[in-house]
Nucleic acid binder design. Structure first.
Lengths: 245, 245
DNA sequence: GCAAAAGTGTTCTCAGTACACCCATGA
DNA sequence: TCATGGGTGTACTGAGAACACTTTTGC
């Protein structure tokens, strides 16, 4: 059985990885490199999101998951389809045209953009065949196509969403400290939060499960570890219709 | 100059109209009707969203606005691209197959779904060539394709969004009463709200501009009219990062 | 014992909530 | 004058915000 690509449709994946050590929200990008056939001139040398054509027989979600798995080997991550990008000129600047000819892209390609949430450490970038690399969201390299815009819109969506849904825990390991949660919020929102108030607020949530464990291998006082209980969270939801305009 | 359709790509528009009189959130649907060529048998007789193929030379947003204008004559409405639908089987039930053959649809069509917000009264459904009709969201008719799902997802997005952004005012006339705002919230969220608390909350917002006008033509005590100032609202935003998980 | 990060308490203010009656108007 | 919906006030409670020092641990 032959799998057929849909020539004018793709998915692109913004992979967000949070690094607990550097306290940085990162984006995973892959290398785009093209040399001229007749000389040593480097025509294209930058980064893009991972993405691929959609196949005839798969759903959009399946396409996104397939692309993610292909690059990272990971499945079952938090995944959000957040926007479609279809500007007629989205692949039309000089480098993109070169690349598109080389790869036989359709010039009018619409892409369905997803973002994924995980921990930077979950991905082995050293042994990655696509030369994937993490970049802090605040310090992105030269990015091809309209992918910079896609990354920015993914980030805006994440920023809004993390205020109302407990997706922050997708960026943290299973066991984490209160201060780590605070640091993720501070990274994403670009604000500083009062530690005492934040602790009280979070510790009082029923879905925060304190463990009989502390950090190990830290060189200072080890902190109390917690888990997030999605179960308990889901039971609590729908009770607070807080109109906040 | 010839305009070319992209055969496997469309936009679909969920048009929400709020009716201040009946206090109902409505959806505008168009008739889908097909008779057999050889007999009088009615093959398809139901409703669908308005939508159309995307043209080669237009953006997704332009396609959605064009489709809306074609049906309603209206422009400059609140518009939100909220999701792409691309299940391989989304047009595959019996009636949809009949219809798709009749209209020469590509069976694997991906649609980019938008919703629009307006007032029911803005549209003249009597003289509409597409037999467009309003249906309360809570009482939809038989709906073709996967459009019921699309409507439901649009509604969920609207429900979430109206809690954090002042889109409620897009559903009301320029001048409105406090009670009308409350009624829209109650319709959309399916809750009842204490009138005294709601009034206080809303009246204290700087973006609520009280007018030197009262309702006219009402048979009871006329209410104070207000306007929403988007200007003032925009200046206030970004001051409250309220983490509400 | 010292450096570093973890952890803790109180006061104030403001917003949410619960709750029932009077008022203005048109008919 | 009456029916209808518009409009109002108070007390309680709980959450957010501001603010600085002590504790625990590894080295």
């Amino acid at each position: 059985m032959k799998i057929k690509k849909i020539p004018n449709l793709s998915v692109d994946c913004v992979i967000f990885g949070y690094d607990t050590n550097t306290k940085s929200l990162n984006v995973l990008l892959i290398k785009r490199y093209l040399k001229a056939t007749t000389s040593d001139e480097v025509l294209v040398d930058d980064y893009v999101l991972t993405g691929y054509h959609i196949y005839e027989n798969e759903t959009l979600d399946e396409a996104a998951s397939r692309v993610l798995k292909e690059l990272t080997g990971l499945t079952n991550l938090y995944k959000k389809q957040f926007k479609a990008f279809g500007d007629p000129n989205r692949l039309m600047n000089e480098k993109d045209v070169l690349w598109s000819k080389h790869e036989n892209f359709n010039f009018r390609t619409i892409t369905i953009a997803y973002y994924f949430l995980l921990k930077t450490e979950d991905i082995d970038v050293i042994h990655n065949k696509h030369e994937a690399k993490w970049f802090p969201y605040t310090d992105l390299p030269s990015v091809g196509f309209d992918h910079k815009k896609i990354i920015q819109e993914a980030y805006e969506d994440l920023k809004t969403k993390c205020l109302h849904e407990p997706i922050i825990f997708e960026l943290l390991p299973e066991k984490f400290t209160i201060n780590e949660v605070q640091e993720v919020y501070e990274s994403i929102l670009g604000v500083t939060i009062d530690n005492r108030n934040f602790r009280r607020k979070l510790i009082n949530k029923k879905y925060m499960i304190p463990l009989d464990e502390k950090q190990i291998g830290v060189s200072k006082r080890p902190a109390q570890l917690y888990m997030f209980s999605k179960n308990i969270y889901d039971k609590m939801v729908n009770t607070n219709f807080l109109i906040n305009i």
